[in-house]
Simulated scan of single mutants.
Amino acid sequence: MIERRKLLGLGLGVLGASAVGPMAAFAQSKFGPGADPIADLLMKQGDLGSAAEGMPENGLPEAPVPAPQTIHRVSSEPRWVKLHNVHTQEKLEAVYFDKGEYVPDAVQALDKVLRDYRTGDVAPMNPKLYDIMAGLAARTESKSPFQIISGYRSPKTNAMLHARSGEVAKRSLHMDGKAIDLYLEDVSLDRLRTAALDLKLGGVGYYPVSNFVHVDVGAVRRWVGS
């Protein structure tokens, strides 16, 4: 592991009382086979499944959204993301992009927090999702971590949710690590949705009843669900 990318050195930290004390050990750890550095530090809670999970990214489009025509320069400035998994109660704050590239240690730690909490399966999340989240935080001027309803979804979990609800896509982008369902505690849901649409970086689903916004790195489109 490259020294400059040690988690604390790049601003990667686990928040909350459960992280007090062992942080130095976590910062020095490596993510290898059998390693479970975050789970060792954080208290896990039981299955908190709800109808808010598993909402589709293939709903009927409310209206087409044109793809952006301007090519933006990619800044090499550090990018932060803060998130909280509402099912496991894990919290993570990380510099995931630095010196013009994604930071492997941070991205791997984020993958862990965004795992399928039902099965424990971990899969690589598309790092462009973190760019969307960073853009949303900047546009909304939020000071809160993103509350994560659903990140990666295993085929087993997705099949179960699809059988439960016709709104869940049979081949969900969650299964490819390309979608996240989220909300911010200090930003209204409609404002978060507007910010996501303004970014024009992928699909945006609005779920006012279930209280989350779906964002993905698929085609630029939008829809409204329940």
Rank of each mutant, 00 (worst) to 15 (best):
M1D: 02
R5E: 14
L8E: 09
G9L: 10
G11I: 00
G11P: 11
G16Q: 07
P22E: 09
M23V: 14
A24F: 14
S29W: 02
K30V: 12
A35F: 12
D36T: 12
I38S: 09
I38Y: 04
D40S: 15
L42S: 11
M43A: 13
K44Y: 06
L48C: 07
S50Q: 10
A52Q: 05
A52T: 00
E53N: 09
L60Q: 11
V65R: 14
A67S: 13
V74E: 05
V74K: 03
V74N: 00
S75K: 03
S76L: 01
V81F: 06
K82S: 12
H84Q: 07
N85Q: 14
N85C: 14
H87W: 11
K91R: 15
V95I: 06
V95F: 02
K99I: 02
Y102K: 01
Y102G: 02
V103R: 08
V107W: 01
Q108N: 08
A109G: 10
K112S: 11
R115T: 00
D116W: 00
T119G: 12
G120V: 01
P127E: 02
L129Y: 12
Y130F: 15
D131W: 01
M133P: 10
M133Y: 05
A134W: 01
A134G: 11
A137S: 14
A138I: 01
T140V: 07
F146V: 06
F146T: 06
Q147I: 07
I149A: 13
S150W: 00
S154P: 12
P155V: 03
M160F: 09
L161D: 09
H162S: 14
A163H: 13
M175T: 11
K178L: 06
I180S: 10
L182W: 06
S188L: 00
R191G: 04
L192P: 07
T194D: 15
A196M: 10
L199E: 10
G203V: 04
G203Q: 10
V204M: 06
G205L: 05
G205S: 09
P208F: 02
P208S: 07
S210Q: 15
S210C: 12
N211L: 05
G218E: 05
R222I: 06
W223M: 00
